[in-house]
Nucleic acid binder design. Structure first.
Lengths: 335, 335
DNA sequence: CTGAAAGCGCTTACAG
DNA sequence: CTGAAAGCGCTTACAG
């Protein structure tokens, strides 16, 4: 591999100690009062030898790697892919790099990723928490490892997070449906005790109750590992039984599955069924008619997560918990 | 941060040297003939102290980081997101981790990512090369840095790659269009000298020529940084001038932009215009009618890329260059 | 102004 | 069977 040149090579060439070289190359020449001619010679030698520092060695010595560990549900899901991109760009501005891992909403996988990243000495974590991983996050807290949760948080867990006001988002969406004359609004969500899911269904229930529609409340909860089939079933049944005249989906993936089913059973939107989806997606634009959906300010949220994390890395900080407002993108799927 | 426990802590506790501990924990107790009782004591101490090795220290010492540098155009693009996921999973099987970076098809950004990753001592690279970055890749070759290109390659560059048979894919697609009775097939591609683009347009030209349709050949090349607007223009013009009765798009992103334009101008598919897209995408399924498209065996390609890379990391290997066959997913957008 | 030396946490060739 | 020691490539407290 031709051996990269090291500090020592430069030191030898110029005839000084590695300490001097390190100082100069790190811009400490003034502070350490290195002679300007010497400094110049060192810099010249560095470029001549094409020197570039070994970050592993530096990390070992400094005890810091300038690396963020990012754990999300699935990088192949465009929602998380976009998030990863935003985080990548923001981190790069501060000379941080990110290593990622997909948990598939599985707590064990998530734990193993945390372990791996810890061994790699990441400076902090940005995590989309899976169900049941409270202990895992608490342990990170005990280690005083900088951490910010994103997309979801655990109630009562004293840590930083950046999330959507999920309650408000769905509340707003359901109100919109009702204002368009729908009475039997159904909701399709995940079987999950994670707050973001509970908040979304709570927003739904409240909105329904607010209009005296308690009796029409109907939350269909599906399993993460068989979304496609279960949602297919649910939509089929809703349609056959004329059980609902509107449906709101609690996540992007659920929406997509729902659209496949609606297409399959040839359900007329919005005539037979009004529909509201979650998070933007190109597919929503091509569905006929274009879907009304709840939009998260992903860009801001991703950037904020990095900002908060770097804050925490800098030093013990106050806990920061941020809730962002959604935007309801109204199109023609609600009548 | 409560200090992670180190080899030395274990050594002290048990009263042996760190060497012994290292041997035992790395399963070399047999080879180094460590006494079985001692080995047990060491292992017990390790679990008692909750020991977990510092990979940075190990990396510095071993000169290897078990890290793959992945450079792709944009992780937010689902095509690359899926690829990243496949690579992540395959790498994890062999205890490798991946750090990623998005180049935006920009050679300078790509070069800077290569630099960063090199300083981080990655063991090898998987790169989706940008236009004009030959020198950058050659320099990696000179350093004997393990490298495999994916999605595209540079002709004449002696390195490993895993790509689609792009020529064959488009050739097949255009033939299908012609077999459905279309005569004026247009192609929308990127302005790019990268082979994968050239191969795709070559496949188009050959198929047209093969049916005596040389005079109808029309390749529209758009700029990566203004895809949406340019494609909009092109589609509008094709439609207004009745210039073509079919169009094939050269990438996923181009297809999406094309669909937006087709929708905007209310063009009837396939009556007025038959359409073939590139790479699967949920949006293709909801477009009306569902799109016929060229499918890449992404899963196999991603896995193969990792396999080849790890081969190269293991030791100097023969160069491996693989071309995969596409699959034409036929639906109703071609008549 | 400049440099020798210690040390980050490991692995491994070497010696006994 | 076991361990002392060197060394990976840096940074930094310390001494002069």
């Amino acid at each position: 591999m031709g051996k990269k040149t090291s500090l020592k090579d430069i030191a030898n060439k110029v005839g000084v100690s590695t300490a001097l070289v390190s100082y100069v190359l790190n811009g400490l020449e003034k502070e350490k009062r290195v002679g300007p001619e010497l400094a110049l010679k060192i810099k010249e030698a560095a470029t001549a030898l094409n020197y570039t520092p070994n970050q592993i060695a530096r990390s070992l010595r400094k005890g810091t790697t300038n690396t963020i560990g990012l754990i999300l549900a699935d990088i192949a899901n465009p929602f998380f892919g976009q998030l990863a991109r935003i985080i990548e760009d923001e981190a790069a501005k501060f000379n941080y790099i990110v290593i990622y891992g997909s948990s598939d909403e599985n707590c064990l996988k998530s734990a193993s990723l945390v372990e791996t990243f810890l061994d790699r000495q990441v400076d902090g974590f940005i995590i989309v928490p899976s169900e049941g991983c409270r202990e895992q996050l608490e342990s990170l807290g005990r280690k005083e490892m900088p951490l910010v949760l994103i997309d979801r948080y655990l109630p009562g867990l004293a840590t930083n997070y950046v999330v959507l006001d999920n309650y408000g988002a769905v509340y707003d969406a359901v109100n919109h449906l009702i204002s368009m004359g729908r009475k039997n609004v159904a909701m399709v969500a995940y079987k999950s005790s994670l707050v973001h899911m509970e908040e979304r269904t709570r927003g739904y229930r409240q909105a329904m109750a607010g209009h005296g529609l308690e009796n029409s409340i109907s939350v269909h909860a599906v399993d993460y590992y068989s979304v496609r089939e279960e949602v297919d079933q649910i939509i089929n049944q809703i349609h056959d039984d004329r059980e609902a005249d509107a449906v709101v989906f609690a996540t992007n993936a659920l929406t997509i599955s729902g659209l496949y089913a609606i297409q399959k059973y040839n359900i007329k939107v919005p005539e037979e069924l009004a529909v509201i989806g979650f998070d933007g997606n190109e597919a929503f634009d091509f569905f006929n008619p274009p879907l009304t959906y709840i939009r998260q300010p992903l860009e801001e949220m991703g950037r904020e997560a990095v900002r908060v994390l770097l804050d925490q890395i800098k030093g013990p900080q106050k806990i920061q918990q941020m809730k962002y407002k959604h935007q309801l993108i109204k199109r023609s799927s609600c009548g």
